[in-house]
Design a protein around this nucleic acid. Sequence first.
DNA 1: TAAAAATACTCCATAGGTATTTTAT
DNA 2: ATAAAATACCTATGGAGTATTTTTA
Lengths: 303, 303
Amino acid sequence: MAPTFHQLHLFYTVAEKSSFSRAAQALHMTQPAVTMQIQGLEDYYGAKLFRRTTKKIELTEAGQALLPYATRFIGLMQEADREMSRFAKKQQGHLQLGASLTIGEYILPRLLGPFAKEFPELTVNMKVTNTTRLLEHVLRQELTFALIEAPVQHPDIHTEPVLDDELLLIVPAGHPLGRQEKVTLSDLRGCPFVLREQGSGTRQVMEEQLRAQGLDPSDLRIDMELGSTGAIKSAVEAGLGVTVLSESSVKHELALGVLAAKRIEGVRFKRSFYVLYLKAALLPLAAVTFLTFIRERDLNRWL
Amino acid sequence: MAPTFHQLHLFYTVAEKSSFSRAAQALHMTQPAVTMQIQGLEDYYGAKLFRRTTKKIELTEAGQALLPYATRFIGLMQEADREMSRFAKKQQGHLQLGASLTIGEYILPRLLGPFAKEFPELTVNMKVTNTTRLLEHVLRQELTFALIEAPVQHPDIHTEPVLDDELLLIVPAGHPLGRQEKVTLSDLRGCPFVLREQGSGTRQVMEEQLRAQGLDPSDLRIDMELGSTGAIKSAVEAGLGVTVLSESSVKHELALGVLAAKRIEGVRFKRSFYVLYLKAALLPLAAVTFLTFIRERDLNRWL
DNA sequence: TAAAAATACTCCATAGGTATTTTAT
DNA sequence: ATAAAATACCTATGGAGTATTTTTA
């Protein structure tokens, strides 16, 4: 009797697309099915929601009144999904996940194992390509969502940050660089570095970024390579060198004053993830679960 | 795939009743049907929502997380219903409406005609008895809702004000009673009254109230009986007497200072409506439409 | 052992699909 | 004339009922 969430979602999509047929297409349905559900809503509320002509449809006054509620319903449902994904242990489903090169190569592989262990009933399928192709795949609904390093602009696509870390130069307390107003790359020449080993995500991202700025990573003087973030922090604290880490992973030490963080002029060691998915299709719970998993991890522990 | 509003409502009721069977009963369903829907939710979220034992069930952590969302969904749906009822012209349905004696006798009869005219597809059936019996009928789901004059206390019942007017003594500007600190009933003896005719709702309610306070309405000196609120206001403004009206119907004149309103010590000419309906069962849209109709009317124009 | 929830099954309503007609530009 | 929405009709999924079994205080 009461409207279903599904109906309100269809209504929202029809309003958004200003067309029954296009909404149907966006939602993997046929046009008559959409018509039926909208009629169901109209019957329930006892008022027409759209004024139809063959060329265009437009919201009636009643439709305009309902639209914000539909939006709020969708938002609330997504919020609930997000909250509930914390508890989803025996959830089952399948994810067609896309990832850009860096993410797909360095970062996701290390997360998929633990994820599969924690959510054994959720199977994940990953496709790695460039952002443009990922966008096309998502538009064609061949991928549920994709993880990329920068937001994209497209009317049918929703982008949302999953993680937005910046890697900073980390120096021990009292280090001369910590007192400088500005730190430039040339300041770092000859400076002893303590870094994660070759092949670690952090290291890879850093080197990629350096190369992207036209700098050769081998110009750096790397004195020490350690296998964990904790070890690196200790080494830097002990004055064995400087390093590059995300601010969040040294929050504690910064607060205590044992380490200092500086941004390097002209260089952005950004580590950003954005999810990209179709506006029309609600993000399925399995995807939300996956994103929650990523967000909850302290990614720096895995990189 | 996504949870239905219905499922969330069932979930809410089961949580509220702490029992599948009692929730089923409250919602006119069988226990297995409730079980199925809850299982559907649990499958979707991949987590148990209730910890079941034969004697009692309790929310799991996941259930506790979902409950506030279920509540918000229900609230949002009711809000939408209320908003949409403004447009519901061709809505169809049937209302089993209960009303207390005064409301059912003096007030509703005058509203049902216009309502039926505006909502020709909504049929209304009215039962008039005392509040106690109305409560029983609502509990037994023989009535969709009931309109009464005062809120009732019952764990399964929701009461909500529809209208809460107080009738005040209205005197022309500059009238001696308007300057008095306190006006008592004895002040009114011999005072010329301008009132609605016998049989009008306002008049009836007033006389009932007077009698309830042990006073004989015929003690009042009624100089004039007029057929409309507007006529009465004009007569009082012109100094032809004093009257009793709800504050809202003389708001304008009070602001202009042409009339003054006083409360009579020891007498409360209250005109309150409360809706009373089952907490478990959402108020059907037809009922919301009816209540919106009542609220939107300036009742004083009809009484 | 006696409640309450879970299963098993049956049935029917309805959501959705395909084919077609209607409508308005 | 044409593109889009509505209607007709059919099928099948799943929601709800009845009957029954399982569970645990």
